[in-house]
Amino acid sequence: MYLLIGIVFGITMMKSETVSWFCIYEMFIFESFHKYGIIGVAFFLGVIMTQIIKRYKIKSFYGEAILFPPK
């Protein structure tokens, strides 16, 4: 299961070109919107997801309560 999630993540990182040094460089000289778009979408969906899980106390697939450890 974790291996599969990792593979999906790896494919995403490569396909989105997020891991490319060139893309990171381009982001910091503000010549590309690409990475800001990626992180914006992920953040937007992440907030919604986290708030819904907290509000409705959604249980994990194994029936355990979901905790968000503070950073």
Binding site: M1, Y2, I5, V8, F9, T12, K15, S16, E17, T18, F33, H34, K35, Y36, G37, I38, I39, G40, V41, A42, F44, L45, G46, M49, T50, I53, S60, F61, Y62, E64, I66, F68, P69
Partner: peptide, 25 residues
């Protein structure tokens, strides 16, 4: 083809969702 940003962003959120739903982060 490489993925556009909106697909990639959704995929990252999906990975996080899966990890949260299996009780991890």
């Amino acid at each position: 083809e490489p993925w556009p940003w909106y697909v990639s962003g959704v995929m990252i959120a999906l990975v996080m969702f899966l990890l949260i739903m299996v009780g991890k982060n």
